[in-house]
């Protein structure tokens, strides 16, 4: 259980639109649909900073800058060695990776653009963000189906130990035809791949002391970020359960849940309804297989619910939702046995 770690900003963009208003429209079932290749990045970032970067870098950078603005943080006014960036992703810079392969296969390998290679390495988005914004502290890319939860965990540990004041933690993945081909034979609902929402979301994590000193408004506190890999560790009472590890002062009142297949979802629902949460919503279908982008959106949703449950009562189908919700837990049982639990508490 962490103490004194707060979320002071969020930023998000994707195939569904950009910013909080579009995000809420999406939750209400009215997404402003576009595709990443048609997105007007120039309207949101100075793309000279990321000249010729892959879409994932552009998405991550857009969301990171929005989150910093939301938190009213200027890196120039911070000790940049005490600011970090952590990005979770499953597929990384997929477009450049694919283009690079296509160039290699169909053309002269010596004529391949160098940027295709350097920008197709998974840590390229983090590098672009740290370079363009002048962030000199801890930077890392986590890979996997619960990569954002792992990023939140690493950031919280480093803030808790006093190594960082502020950490940008996000997730990013973008759609590509290649994904449907890749997962077509492997997932329970391959059609979801085609309707997924790619993009990026970022949260600003900050020590409470640092936030208070600069008079920041806080959305929520990060209480816990846990990760267990083997699927049965979560579902079987014979093994250690993530839910058994929930350790908050005010018992969790609300559970958001995500699963990659219906069987998981049913199992979890049965398990949870006998257990801890007062309220439960499966939000799997909102973002589809959005990979780390979807995970970042889910975390942002959990933060926003923790901050203002009334605003989301219609989306959640619970008109009785009131300020009585103290904690929102986001549980993911994802592809390849990845399981994570992140707990945010209301800013009391």
């Amino acid at each position: 259980m962490y103490s004194g770690i707060v979320i002071t900003g969020v930023g998000m963009m994707g195939d569904w639109g950009v910013g909080r208003d579009d995000f809420i429209s999406l939750l209400l079932g009215h997404p402003t649909l576009t595709t990443i290749d048609k997105f007007d990045f120039d309207a949101h970032i100075d793309t000279n900073l990321l000249r010729r970067a892959d879409y994932i870098s552009l998405c991550a950078f857009t969301a990171a800058v929005m989150a910093l603005r939301d938190a009213k943080i200027s890196i120039k006014q911070e000790d940049s060695t005490r600011v970090g960036v952590i990005l979770g992703t499953v597929h990384g810079p997929l477009h450049y990776s694919f283009d690079y392969h296509a160039s290699l296969v169909t053309g002269d390998p010596k004529m391949v653009s160098p940027m295709f290679f350097s920008d197709s390495i998974p840590n390229a988005p983090v590098s672009h963000i740290s370079t363009a914004l002048g962030i000199h502290g801890y930077t890392i890319t986590t890979q996997g189906y619960c990569a954002v939860a792992q990023g939140l965990k690493i950031a919280a540990e480093r803030i808790q130990r006093g190594a960082l004041d502020v950490c940008l933690v996000g997730g990013a993945d973008v759609n590509h035809d290649f994904l449907a081909k890749l997962y077509g034979g492997c997932v329970a609902h391959p059609k979801k791949i085609a309707t997924t929402f790619g993009g990026s979301g970022f949260l600003i994590l900050e020590s409470l002391d640092h936030a208070q000193k600069r008079g920041a408004v806080t959305y929520a506190h990060l209480e816990q970020a846990l990760m267990i890999t083997a699927k049965y560790e979560v579902l079987s009472s014979q093994h250690v359960s993530l839910l058994d590890k929930i350790d908050v002062q005010n018992p969790s009142k609300y559970l958001l849940s995500v699963a990659d297949d219906d069987k998981d979802s049913e199992l979890r629902r049965d398990y949870f309804l006998n257990g801890i949460p007062d309220h439960y919503t499966d939000c799997s279908s909102i973002f589809g297989y959005g990979f780390a982008a979807a995970e970042s959106f889910q975390n942002i949703l959990a933060v926003l619910i923790a901050q203002s449950p009334q605003m989301f009562s219609s989306f959640l189908g619970m008109t009785e939702l009131t300020t009585a919700i103290n904690n929102v837990s986001l549980l993911r049982t994802a592809f390849a046995g990845g399981n994570s639990l992140v707990v945010f508490s209301r800013n009391v």
Binding site: I121, I140, T141, T142, Q143, Q150, M227, T229, A230
Partner: peptide
Amino acid sequence: ILGETLILNNA
């Protein structure tokens, strides 16, 4: 090996 598995990328 059971427990958290974590892949990091830092080039």
